[in-house]
Amino acid sequence: MLKHKANAQQKKTYRLLIFTTIFLVLLAIPAYFWMQSSTRRAEQFKKSRMSPVIMVPGSSATKERFNTLVKMLNEDTKNKHSLLKLEVKNSGKITYSGKIRRGDREPIIVVGFENNHDGYNNIKKQAKMFDSAFNELSEEYKFNNFKAFGHSNGGLIWTYWLEHYYSDYKEHITIKRLMTVGSPYNFNETSTNNKTQMFSDFVDNRSKIPSNLSVISVIGTETYDSDGLVPEASVQAGKYIYQKQVKHFTTMTVTGEDAEHSDLPQNKQIVNLIEQYIMDYQNGKRNNPQNKPKN
């Protein structure tokens, strides 16, 4: 009696085991193809030799903001960097203009936004918009490393993006260097005793910033404490975000001609700094690593 009942149980179990095996095979098939495609993708990333410079303009500026800067950069090199410009519309649509020349290993990509207003809320929105653009770019060009450049609020967008979005990519994309120019980490405050919400959020989340990154923060000054728009102290506040978190954090002060806030991207000295510290290739040759802040 007991034995008979147990056998019925055993049959039931075996039936379930057979179903499970079929289920496992059904899982194995899509898993196999998923693995193949994700490996292929990882290979493409690994083998990619492109290392773009991605630039983000500040508030009230458009994707055309860096045209002069790129022109000045290209004047000095034989291998011209191609320029791709993206604009993220408020609807989420992304438009492209310009293009990356085939074989260009170090193109310049500018990401602008239709909503280019100032303020912490807009920066959050812009970081999100930037992320969707970055996502498209990384899928399209499959670069495994890049350099970042941000003017004014562009640097804030980079910081916010690094703290909130970069972790999605860090497995296969490395951000090598970040240069911010005149970025007001503490908005218009002249002292870190008055912390803006944005600044304290940046400091709170700093541990998410990759530790192998080199950051250069450039300050322009017209008077002794401001570039005419952004107080020097607000740019200096960046050290509370980056210092002791990233591999190298360097600040530099530029004065003299074209040191006014909106002139900074056309400042000859800053162009030199970009060539020296951000670009990998100079005159078609690999940038001498000794020229860089050791990394």
């Binding site: 007991l2 034995k3 009942k5 147990a6 056998n7 149980q9 055993q10 179990t13 075996y14 379930l16």
Partner: peptide, 15 residues
């Protein structure tokens, strides 16, 4: 356990 067990509790455990 699925192969060896006879009791109803053991098979319930497996399932």
């Amino acid at each position: 356990v699925a192969i060896e067990a006879r009791a109803i509790e053991d098979h319930k455990l497996v399932r």
